[in-house]
């Protein structure tokens, strides 16, 4: 419960700083990038990193740093939206299953099991090929993919907290299900949910990069780190900085959120 615990967790410090830097970069890119991310300059193709082009230029002469900055918008948008979808439906399913139990629990958990049996990325590829590529469908596919893990975490939290005496005491005082769920159980399961949110965020960013690399995710002109990797691939030997720097940012993002979730879990363990 002591405040200084926060500064003792190294993963948390690193995670928070990575995520903060990336968030600032994303916010800045909304108003300012050194060059227009889509401005081509045929005379300055595949330039090495220098003070004029911090990360060099790509095969069309576009400034890589500006494109990486703008790509962070997509990464955040997709992470945030996919997690929101997953959290919303996962919470709904998990809370009902955990709170009411019985056949509701049985039915919803079997559906979740069926969803988990399907590899997430395959499921996303299937959805996208049936409908069409683009940011919206990528978000929907990744959101659906993350529902099972949220549902299971919320359910187990609910089952655990439901049997505490303060819940029984509140029922004995006449509280309804709504009050029990939102006032008594939810505040006591926020930390595992928070861990799941950060983990799922990095998972979604990685999955988006993977899908876009395969050409199934975000389509031009929307910028995406995954697609930049794909575009950089043919020039791996002539312009290695292109692929390395882009890959590094995907790594920072994923690592940042993973460390953040580790840190939150550490704090939580220390508390209990």
């Amino acid at each position: 419960m002591k405040k200084h615990n926060i500064f003792k967790s190294i993963p948390l410090i690193i995670g928070v700083s990575f995520v903060t830097v990336l968030t600032i970069m994303m916010l800045v890119s909304l108003f300012y990038t050194p060059y227009s991310p889509n401005a081509m300059d045929p005379s300055d193709r595949l330039a090495q990193p220098s003070f004029t082009h911090l990360f060099g230029t790509d095969n069309f002469g576009r400034d890589i740093f500006s494109r990486v900055m703008q790509g962070s918008q997509t990464a955040f948008l997709i992470g945030f939206s996919a997690v929101s979808i997953g959290l919303f439906f996962g919470f709904l399913i998990g809370a009902c299953a955990g709170y009411f139990g019985g056949w509701i629990d049985e039915l919803s958990m079997r559906i979740i099991d069926a969803m988990m049996a399907l590899p997430g990325i395959l499921f996303a590829i299937m959805l996208i090929s049936v409908f069409e590529t683009g940011i919206r469908n990528t978000i929907i596919a990744l959101g659906i993919m993350s529902i099972p893990s949220f549902a299971r975490i919320v359910r187990s939290g609910f089952i655990q907290v439901k049997q505490f005496d303060f819940v029984k005491a509140s029922i004995a005082k006449g509280a309804g299900s709504f009050r029990i769920i939102f006032q008594h159980i939810l505040p006591n399961v926020t930390s595992p949910i928070l861990v799941a949110v950060t983990l799922s965020f990095s998972g979604s960013v990685l999955a988006e990069a993977g899908l876009s690399y395969l050409g199934l995710g975000v389509q031009p002109p929307d910028p995406s780190w995954g697609r930049m990797l794909k575009e950089a691939q043919p020039f791996m030997s002539t312009a290695p900085w292109y692929v390395i720097l882009t890959g590094l940012f995907i790594t920072f993002m994923v690592l940042g959120f993973n460390l953040l979730s580790d840190g939150i879990r550490d704090l939580q363990d220390k508390k209990s």
Partner: peptide, 22 residues
């Protein structure tokens, strides 16, 4: 609900019977 006002219960473990977040 009206009846629940009339009958109350106090539990054994005072560490578990109060919501820790409130």
């Amino acid at each position: 609900k009206a009846w629940r006002k009339k009958v109350q219960i106090v539990f054994q473990d005072p560490y578990a019977s109060l919501n820790p977040k409130k």
